[in-house]
């Protein structure tokens, strides 16, 4: 692996949650494999989309990166420094560098605090403003950067006076006020009206342009990632199954799971007919991850080998496009 400017790098990250009863009498022999060996690099100034269906571990990944969940195994590297297990002070410092935008802008703002207080809170917690003028100045700057102009008319409002899109902008402003290197956006637009979504996504793209901020965009919607991301990572049951430049992944998906996801995106051309691949069954239980390839029980192209051996990410073609599938890594050569 090259040691270029990866802002954030995950190596073999695992997170297990004990399943079933907890307490003195419970024997926890079973675990939910929320993250099951995730390797991922986020380059400086890049927008990386992490796509996958609900329950595949996307949000656990975000919370683990924020230090809100402790990884069971594996390491997290921030700008070449291992930040996996840190003291309180270290985590506090890391907080300034990695900030998060949450899914639900209606729930992620304290209903009793004004917008000004909400955006100033990170500054107060990290003691970043020397005096009141500086504090106010930075809050206004963050609000305007997040597209709430003019900032002063929002300062004294309460969250319930704003629309969903405006609230999401407040959340983004509260993240920006710390001037972070990385923004984790956990489904930032899924709770918003369709008409507002593009605005928020454009805002993220704009921030990348202006500040060189890196964005990990977590989404269940590949169309969203196509709109914005440089690269796409597709996650299935706690592991990355396909990774590559957005165009490469979306135009020639190599993994059958990605193919299925893409085949159900509506095409705005009624005459163009495509075959939809409808996956059979539910996503398997993350307590009992299937042996072999984790996707094999639902895979339309399942082979004998898939039931036994677990494929790793392998290069698809010449570029950086990778997929974890025996169809890619020379599955046919054995037969």
């Amino acid at each position: 692996m090259s040691e270029t400017a990866a802002v954030l790098e995950l190596r073999n990250l695992r997170k297990l949650f004990p399943a079933g009863r907890s307490g003195i009498w419970a024997r926890t022999s079973e675990f939910v494999h929320a993250l099951d060996g995730v390797d991922l690099r986020l380059e400086k100034g890049e927008i990386l989309a992490l796509a996958g269906e609900s329950g595949c571990g996307k949000s656990t990944l975000a919370l683990t990166l924020m230090g809100l969940e402790k990884p069971t195994q594996g390491t997290i590297w921030f700008e070449g420094e291992d930040v996996t297990r840190q003291s309180r002070a270290g985590r506090q410092r890391l907080c300034r560098q990695i900030q998060m935008v949450f899914q639900d802008p209606y729930e992620s703002l304290n209903p009793l605090m004004t917008i000004g207080e909400i955006v100033a809170e990170p500054l107060d917690v990290h003691r970043l403003a020397q005096n009141r003028e500086e504090r106010r100045g930075r809050v206004e700057k963050a609000l305007e950067e997040a597209g709430l102009k003019p900032a002063h008319i929002f300062m004294n409002r309460l969250p319930h006076e704003l629309s969903g899109g405006q609230r999401q902008r407040v959340v983004i402003a509260a993240a920006l006020v710390l001037e972070p290197e990385v923004l984790l956006a956990d489904e930032p637009v899924s709770m918003l009206d369709v008409s507002i979504r593009a605005e928020i996504l454009n805002l993220l793209a704009e921030l990348r342009e202006r500040r060189g901020i890196s964005v990990l965009l977590i989404t269940h919607d590949l169309a969203t990632s196509a709109y914005l991301a440089d690269r796409v990572a597709v996650m299935y049951l706690g592991r990355i199954v396909e990774l590559g430049e957005t165009q490469a992944v979306l135009e020639s998906p190599a993994h059958p799971y990605t193919q299925a996801l893409l085949s159900v995106i509506p095409v705005p051309n009624p005459r163009k007919r495509r075959e939809r691949i409808i996956l059979q069954g539910q996503p398997p239980n993350p307590v009992h991850v299937p042996a072999g390839c984790r996707f094999h029980p639902r895979c339309p192209k399942v082979m004998e080998r898939c039931r036994v051996e677990d494929p790793v990410l392998a290069a698809v073609g010449a570029g950086s496009h990778q997929a974890a599938c025996w169809l890619v890594s020379g599955g046919g050569s054995d037969e």
């Binding site: 809100l68 506090q92 907080c95 300034r96 949450f102 703002l109 917690v125 990290h126 959340v171």
Partner: peptide, 14 residues
């Protein structure tokens, strides 16, 4: 359990 408490933790609040 409300999300703004999670967000406060993400900001680094004690």
């Amino acid at each position: 359990e409300r999300k703004f408490v999670l967000r406060a933790k993400a900001i680094g609040c004690g």
